[in-house]
Design a protein around this nucleic acid. Structure first.
Length: 423
DNA sequence: TCTGGGGTCCTAGGACCC
DNA sequence: TCTGGGGTCCTAGGACCC
């Protein structure tokens, strides 16, 4: 059966979430910053029109933002996750199969709905989501996921489309492929598009019409070749309906202030290890490798240092205390005094589901008591909020290394104390 | 003063083995 | 002075995604 996919994408998602509680900001420039108020990770079209690109460091355009009265927010991820859930709950009503692709995007399988006018159906989806959640979305329709993405690009950037565009009609498809640069094609990034340029391929249309598949596979990968197939209208990537368990879990933050001593690094590493272990247990897995990275600030003209060390357990574990201990051993091996540290990272890998974890003769596996303790901690933290219970190794709150979030909006939907009032 | 965080997949190259 | 070929596994790093 021929496939038909819709890609539903929330417009400037984080900014739209902030606007929900600040209706005065509609049609005004809005931006949301990364952790530590570092750089822009979401911008409205009004802010882009001022010349601020995605990923721009805030400090470089601060004056411009002040001058144009841009509403700038620190990221409020618990809010965005909550709103995302609401959007997705609406979408699953509209198709038999829906892939929740990211916090602000979902693929819908419309293959069985050919008796409908799909453009009208997409418009109905768009209106329903906007009415029920307040979040504006754009919808692209195509015979492959890659073409649905291309269609979405038109839906979002051309006013005539009014937020919905289908490339099922061939003339629409030609228009969309002509208007899309290769770097905007899903799976073709900056480097690949540069390489394509040397073959005289600049647009998605030129890539689709390039007739040397063998060369594409040689210069790039099998997956890139599949992407080209998808541009030709042949579906190669199926919906992924079940979230796959993570093969590695990373926890890392840039520090709010420079860190010099190992004691402070130990606190941060313990905190990141705890967070990673919570995620590990949430997917009912355990790991056998703990890696620690530390580094100085590469953007700063100071002596630079970057180091990493892995610790291997004989037996898989998901016990926060063991993982912190391992991370500290690794940290002690790489720490060098005299540097200004900017960031630490903890990565768990060789992850297995609990049922298939390796037992070892030489090292104790997690005891029943350990499991009960971890389960209890997770339950309490889930019920009473994150960090209600934590290891003393993580230190007490309000340390300088914790990130800066000077511009954070309130927890409108996830904290009773900060809920919105209507007078 | 100030430049994010969390993932996946692929490849090249080294180690090691027969 | 000469010194194979092929396979696997592992790891670091690159490229991409949101």
């Amino acid at each position: 059966m021929n496939k038909i996919f819709a890609l539903v994408d929330c417009n400037s998602f984080y900014c739209s979430c902030e606007r929900l509680f600040r209706p005065d900001l509609i049609n005004k420039p809005v931006g949301v910053l990364s952790n530590n108020d570092g750089c822009f990770v979401s911008l409205t079209r009004e802010l882009k029109a001022l010349g601020v690109p995605m990923g721009e460091p805030y400090f470089k355009v601060r004056e411009l933002c002040d001058r144009h009265k841009v509403a700038v927010f620190s990221a409020n991820f618990s809010l965005y996750t909550n709103i995302s859930d609401r959007v997705m709950m609406n979408l699953i009503e509209f198709a038999p199969e829906v892939e929740l692709y990211s916090v602000d995007e979902a693929f819908l399988d419309l293959s069985t709905l050919t008796h409908l006018n799909l453009n009208a159906y997409a418009t109905q989806i768009k209106q329903t989501v906007e009415r029920n959640t307040g979040i504006p979305v754009s919808i692209g329709i195509g015979p492959s996921k890659t073409l649905a993405k291309v269609a979405n690009h038109i839906a979002k950037n051309f006013d005539f489309a009014q937020g919905v565009y289908s490339v099922m009609p061939l003339n629409n498809r030609e228009f969309a492929l002509e208007k899309t640069l290769t770097s905007k094609v899903w799976g073709i990034g900056r480097r690949k598009s540069l390489k394509l340029k040397s073959l005289n391929i600049r647009t998605a249309k030129e890539l689709r019409d390039f007739d040397n598949d063998a060369l594409i596979q040689k210069l790039f990968t099998k997956v890139t070749r599949m992407t080209v197939d998808e541009l030709r209208g042949h579906s190669r990537f199926d919906l992924e309906l079940e979230p796959k368990p993570k093969k590695e879990i990373i926890s890392s933050r840039t520090f709010g202030a420079p860190v010099y001593d190992i004691e402070t690094l130990k606190e941060s590493v313990a905190s990141y290890a705890s967070l990673a272990c919570e995620k590990l247990r949430a997917q009912k897995s355990s790991c056998s490798i703990v890696e620690v990275y530390i580094r100085t600030n590469p953007h700063k003209d100071i002596p630079q240092y970057y180091a990493y060390k892995a610790y291997r357990f004989q037996a898989h574990t998901s016990d926060t205390r063991k993982v912190i201990h391992a991370a500290w051993i690794a940290l002690q091996k790489i720490y060098k005094p005299g540097f200004e540290y900017r960031k630490a990272l903890v990565k768990l890998s060789d992850i297995r589901s609990e049922s298939q974890s390796q037992l070892s003769l030489f090292e104790e596996t997690d005891s029943p008591n350990s499991r009960i303790l971890m389960e209890t901690m997770d339950k309490i933290n889930h019920r009473d909020g994150p960090h209600t219970l934590k290891s003393a190794a993580c230190g007490v709150d309000n340390h300088s290394w914790r990130m800066k979030q000077a511009l954070k909006s309130r927890r409108f939907v996830t904290g009773w104390s900060e809920i919105c009032w209507v007078n």
